[in-house]
């Protein structure tokens, strides 16, 4: 059986500036992974191997660190990443209803991506805007005091914008 990692062909040259800056700095593994994810949108296996090679770590250790933190993803994500808060305040104020509305409308599971690749959906803990609960963040923009109706409007707006482009 052929190893999975050789099948992937990411453009590793994009990573070189990051490695040049951080590979030799002790303790920078997480920083490198964060930059890599910014570049590729997720952490492809061949990228992880390359990071291991340049930082003197075993691939297992690199993957061990990457899988420890929820920020890191190992699958491509949609163009819009919906992070719905299910922290305590949002939970008490009905985040479950918002989650149900999103899942039903987009037909995505928690952690999944829509078939058209437009949206990924992920339920997270506390985004720090608890007084506006329930809260969600889409690509860094925060939306608060949500109702199921509003969420659908926001999603439809994005879809309309994308369709127009």
């Amino acid at each position: 059986m052929q190893c999975e990692c050789t099948k992937q062909k990411s453009d590793l040259s994009l990573l070189e500036p990051v490695l040049a800056e951080y590979a030799a700095v002790p303790g920078s593994l997480i920083t490198i992974l964060q930059h890599a994810q910014e570049i590729y949108g997720y952490l492809p296996t061949d990228v992880l191997y390359r990071i291991a090679e340049c930082t003197g770590n075993s691939p297992a250790r690199v993957l061990g660190v990457a899988t420890f933190y929820t920020q890191f993803r190992f699958q491509p994500v949609g163009k819009y990443l919906i992070m719905l808060c299910d922290g305590t305040a949002c939970h008490v104020n009905g985040s479950a209803r918002i989650a149900a509305a999103v899942q039903e409308y987009l037909h995505v599971e928690n952690g999944g991506t829509t078939e058209d690749g437009l949206f990924s959906f992920s339920i997270v803990a506390c985004l720090g805007c608890c007084s506006l609960s329930p809260v969600m963040m889409i690509n860094g923009d925060t939306y608060g005091s949500l109702t199921p109706e509003q969420v659908l409007e926001i999603l439809k707006d994005i879809q309309a914008k994308e369709a127009a482009e």
């Binding site: 002790p26 593994l29 997480i30 920083t31 660190v65 420890f68 933190y69 929820t70 920020q71 803990a125």
Partner: peptide, 25 residues
């Protein structure tokens, strides 16, 4: 500044240090 990477336990001070050193927290 060091940006965390999403792990509640990294708020615990010794886990935070592990994370600062680039390890699992």
């Amino acid at each position: 500044i060091k940006a965390g990477a999403g792990a509640f336990v990294c708020g615990e001070e010794t886990a935070l240090i592990e994370s600062l050193e680039g390890q699992r927290g």
